[in-house]
């Protein structure tokens, strides 16, 4: 089966006063229909810029997609003119954001916003579009969808708004859904509801999902494949089982060791004195990256080669890739 989304060699840079910021460097991945690929990393690792690059929503200038291709069903989005790209957004590739208020227009009712999307892309009549909006709200399990469709975004709770945004994103049944930290602003009980919802809708529509998150728990529960990014580059890629069981790169290994876990996950007798493993230092500035491996200054295993040369991203084990001289 050919992947629905194929990203290869994507590089995005920002021309700033502080010099050239290489936000995303040579990132490639592909996602099949119905599959979820998670991109994990900390702030500044380039995961959100990757997501925005897929949608071609990078502000230009100062940003620029320097090279690469983003193919949805074989069509390279980066080669399209702005008008054709606009048609692709929503119908073929859609995005949901961390803060739904930024994506929803506060002056238009939720139902109307979804209906507009349908009219725009499917050319449906107003009545059809309206019915479809209510149907979508029902699908994202908003109670009393007909009444809720007439509400403005600010009248809804955070969880409801996120549902409405998902309804809007999926209204035209896009092939690819890019979800940028969709549950970070939500409480845990609501987060669980939203993640379940995305999963269910994905199964129903066969959507390929790119999930951007910093939460390894969310990754473990929702994704099939994982890409770990650090300082703008991919450092590891594997199936979710492989990555959590056997991380090859010291960065994801350190991350997994540094997070506290709720007791049920690892036997119960957790003494409060047990120290968490730390990753010393901090994320480097993207305009001032170290010469070799960007993680080398924080890595306990780094040797002279690590500090001198950027390690290639290569196959290390069966279907398990990493960029590390030591792995």
């Amino acid at each position: 089966m050919a992947p629905v989304l194929e990203v290869s060699g994507l590089s995005t840079v920002f021309h700033t006063r502080r010099g050239l910021v290489r936000a995303v460097q040579d990132v490639s991945f592909s996602v099949n229909a119905g599959e979820t690929l998670a991109i994990v990393g900390e702030s500044g690792c380039g995961k959100t810029i990757t997501a925005l690059s897929l949608m071609r929503l990078i502000p230009q200038p100062p940003g620029e997609i320097a090279s690469g291709s983003v193919k949805v069903d074989g069509v390279d989005l980066l080669q399209l003119d702005e008008a054709s790209m606009r048609k692709m957004r929503g119908s073929k590739i859609a995005m949901i954001f961390q803060e739904p208020m930024t994506a929803l227009n506060p002056l238009i009712t939720v139902g109307k916003q979804i209906a507009e999307m349908v009219t725009l892309h499917d050319g449906a009549s107003r009545q059809v579009a309206r019915d479809r909006a209510i149907e979508m709200l029902h699908l994202v399990r908003i109670p009393e969808p007909a009444r809720r469709a007439r509400e403005y975004p600010h009248q809804m709770s955070g969880g409801m708004r996120q549902r409405a945004m998902i309804a809007m994103a999926l209204a035209c049944k896009p092939k690819v859904l890019v979800a940028d930290e969709p549950t970070t602003a939500l409480d845990v009980t609501i987060q669980a509801q939203i993640l379940d919802l995305i999963g269910d809708l994905q199964r129903e529509f066969g959507t390929a999902v790119v999930l951007i998150t910093h939460d390894l728990g969310v990754v473990a529960e929702t994704a099939q494949r994982v890409v770990v990014m650090y300082a703008g580059r991919k450092v590891e890629e594997a199936s979710v089982e492989d990555l959590f069981a056997n991380p090859l790169h010291p960065y994801p290994r350190g991350l997994l060791a540094s997070i506290p876990r709720v007791g049920s996950a690892r036997g119960l007798d957790v003494s409060p004195d047990e120290r968490l493993q730390e990753i010393s230092g901090m994320v480097p500035a993207l305009n001032n990256l170290p010469q070799g491996c960007a993680f080398a200054p924080r890595c306990s295993q780094a040797d002279a080669k690590c500090h001198a040369q950027v390690p290639p991203f290569e196959l290390k084990q069966h279907d398990h890739f990493a960029a590390c001289w030591q792995a």
């Binding site: 609501i190 669980a192 529960e221 089982e241 959590f244 997070i259 876990r261 049920s264």
Partner: peptide, 24 residues
């Protein structure tokens, strides 16, 4: 419900999903 909702960083755990409905 809170404990059941916390996503665990371990894909080998297949948990029964106990979800509470509704908002706070």
């Amino acid at each position: 419900a809170l404990l059941a909702a916390v996503p665990l960083p371990d894909p080998s755990l297949k948990r029964t999903k106990h979800r509470v409905e509704g908002d706070v």
